[in-house]
Computed example of a mutant assay.
Amino acid sequence: MDSLAKLSKLLDEDDFEMLEIYLGRAQNHVKSYCNLSELNETQQEIAEDIAIFNYRNKGVENIVSEGKGSLSESYRNDLPPDLIRRLNQHRRMRFV
């Protein structure tokens, strides 16, 4: 099963064009962060997980918590620590 089909099943979403955008951005993020030119199967799964994370956070503006009395909001600045840890396992150094 290809990545778009997996995302479609996991997210119950039929808009393949939108999923392709999320997946493409996630793949580019993994390549850039890890200094890679192409992704192996494990790295592709990480990109799929990032695409799912970003898709599920659309429209919530990365709000982690929200309070109503005297108004308190917390925002997520980055990917969850487990995704960062998985990315770091594949990160390569770049020599200039």
Score class of each variant (00 low, 15 high):
residue 19 L to C: 15
residue 17 E to I: 08
residue 11 L to K: 11
residue 70 S to A: 12
residue 14 D to Q: 05
residue 69 G to S: 11
residue 9 K to I: 13
residue 15 D to P: 02
residue 30 V to P: 06
residue 62 N to I: 00
residue 10 L to N: 12
residue 19 L to E: 10
residue 3 S to V: 14
residue 45 E to P: 00
residue 34 C to S: 00
residue 8 S to A: 11
residue 68 K to Q: 11
residue 24 G to Q: 10
residue 31 K to H: 03
residue 14 D to Y: 00
residue 90 H to V: 01
residue 34 C to T: 00
residue 92 R to E: 07
residue 46 I to P: 03
residue 55 Y to N: 09
residue 41 E to N: 07
residue 13 E to S: 07
residue 53 F to C: 11
residue 95 F to L: 10
residue 7 L to M: 04
residue 70 S to G: 07
residue 11 L to N: 12
residue 88 N to A: 00
residue 9 K to V: 15
residue 92 R to H: 07
residue 26 A to V: 15
residue 73 E to A: 12
residue 51 A to S: 08
residue 20 E to F: 02
residue 22 Y to N: 04
residue 12 D to C: 12
residue 87 L to E: 02
residue 94 R to V: 03
residue 80 P to H: 03
residue 33 Y to H: 04
residue 3 S to Q: 11
residue 52 I to F: 08
residue 40 N to H: 06
residue 2 D to K: 06
residue 46 I to F: 08
residue 85 R to Q: 11
residue 76 R to D: 05
residue 53 F to P: 05
residue 84 I to F: 05
residue 21 I to K: 10
residue 85 R to K: 12
residue 60 V to G: 10
residue 8 S to C: 13
residue 51 A to E: 09
residue 15 D to A: 00
residue 89 Q to N: 06
residue 64 V to K: 13
residue 61 E to H: 15
residue 50 I to E: 01
residue 90 H to T: 02
residue 43 Q to H: 01
residue 50 I to R: 03
residue 4 L to W: 03
residue 96 V to D: 03
residue 86 R to S: 04
residue 48 E to T: 08
residue 16 F to N: 14
residue 69 G to P: 06
residue 39 L to M: 04
residue 86 R to M: 04
residue 58 K to V: 12
residue 53 F to H: 15
residue 1 M to F: 09
residue 67 G to Y: 12
residue 77 N to G: 02
residue 43 Q to G: 00
residue 33 Y to D: 02
residue 53 F to L: 15
residue 3 S to G: 13
residue 50 I to F: 02
residue 40 N to G: 01
residue 93 M to D: 05
residue 62 N to H: 11
residue 96 V to P: 03
